[in-house]
Computed example of a mutant assay.
Amino acid sequence: MHRGKGMKFVGDSRVPATRMPNIPKDYSEYPHKTEAFWPNFLLREWMVGAVFLIGYLCLTIAHPSPLERVADPTDSGYIPLPDWYFLFLYQLLKYEYAAGDFTVIGAVVMPGIAFGALLLAPFLDRGVERRPIKRPVATSLMLLGVIATIFLTWESVDQHDWEAAARQGAIVDDDIDEDAEGYQIYQSQQACINCHGEQGEGGAAGPNLFDNEYEVEDIMEIIQNGVGDMPADQFEGSDEELETLAEWIANDGQDPE
Rank of each mutant, 00 (worst) to 15 (best):
I147A: 15
R130I: 10
M142A: 13
A148N: 10
P122N: 07
W154R: 12
F102Q: 06
I113N: 07
L118W: 03
L120A: 12
P132F: 03
I150G: 13
F102S: 08
V128L: 12
M110R: 06
R126P: 00
A114F: 12
W154C: 14
A117L: 14
M110G: 00
V128C: 07
I133Y: 07
G112N: 04
A117Q: 03
E129S: 11
L124C: 01
V104M: 10
R131T: 10
F102C: 02
L119D: 09
T103Y: 13
F115K: 11
T153F: 08
R131N: 11
V137Q: 03
V146S: 09
M110A: 11
L118K: 04
I113G: 03
G116C: 07
L143Y: 09
S140D: 03
T103E: 12
I147P: 07
V128T: 13
L144Y: 09
R131V: 08
W154N: 10
P136F: 05
V109N: 00
P136T: 04
V104E: 06
V128E: 12
F115G: 13
I113R: 06
P136G: 04
S140I: 06
A121H: 02
F102R: 05
A117G: 08
A138V: 00
V128D: 15
A117E: 02
V109C: 00
F115V: 13
I105F: 01
M110Y: 11
V104W: 11
M110I: 15
K134A: 15
V104S: 08
G116D: 07
V128Y: 09
A121I: 00
I113P: 05
M142N: 09
A121R: 01
A121M: 04
D125N: 04
A148K: 07
L124N: 03
V137H: 02
V104P: 01
R131P: 00
V109L: 08
I105M: 01
M110F: 14
S140T: 14
V137R: 02
V108Y: 04
T149H: 15
P122M: 05
A138D: 00
M110S: 06
L119E: 10
A148Q: 11
V109S: 00
G112Q: 04
L119I: 11
F115P: 06
G106T: 07
A114I: 14
I105N: 00
I150H: 14
A114K: 13
E129W: 08
I147C: 13
E129P: 02
K134E: 12
G116T: 08
E129R: 09
L120R: 02
L119P: 04
A121K: 02
F151N: 14
T149R: 14
V146F: 11
T149V: 13
G145I: 02
P122R: 05
F102T: 01
L118F: 05
E129G: 11
L119F: 11
L120Q: 04
I105E: 00
T103W: 14
F102Y: 12
M110P: 00
R126Y: 04
I150F: 14
T153W: 07
P111R: 08
A117H: 00
